[in-house]
Nucleic acid binder design. Sequence first.
DNA 1: GGTCTGACCGGCG
DNA 2: ACGCCGGCCAGAC
Length: 112
Amino acid sequence: MGKIDQKSFFEDVFEVVKLIPKGRVTSYGAIAAYLGIKSSARMVGWAMNASHGMQGVPAHRVVNRNGLLTGKHHFETPKKMQQLLEKEGIKVKKDQVQDFEKLFWDPVKELL
DNA sequence: GGTCTGACCGGCG
DNA sequence: ACGCCGGCCAGAC
């Protein structure tokens, strides 16, 4: 038998990211935890890198555990990420999402 | 095929 | 408070 074909985990990551409500944010680690690869949050960020050009994958709603826009340099322009967030009503100051705890959307809790 | 590198995270001194 | 390090694992070279 050949190898079992399983969806790449990119697909899984994308699915979750697509479910993040407009105006909310989550973290790489939270997504990783939801997918059962908690300690591999890096992979989530790396997966986001593959989401370039893809539509319906709001990568800007994914920040690090501190609510910091660590991935902004991977957008078309460094300001793009913040602009997209602000367009959804999220306030960002110096790469920091304001009211992060309130806006935080945890897939582990929300997607039961 | 070994080594390095990440859009991270948690722990430890 | 703050910096450093190990883990995790898939690609690139």
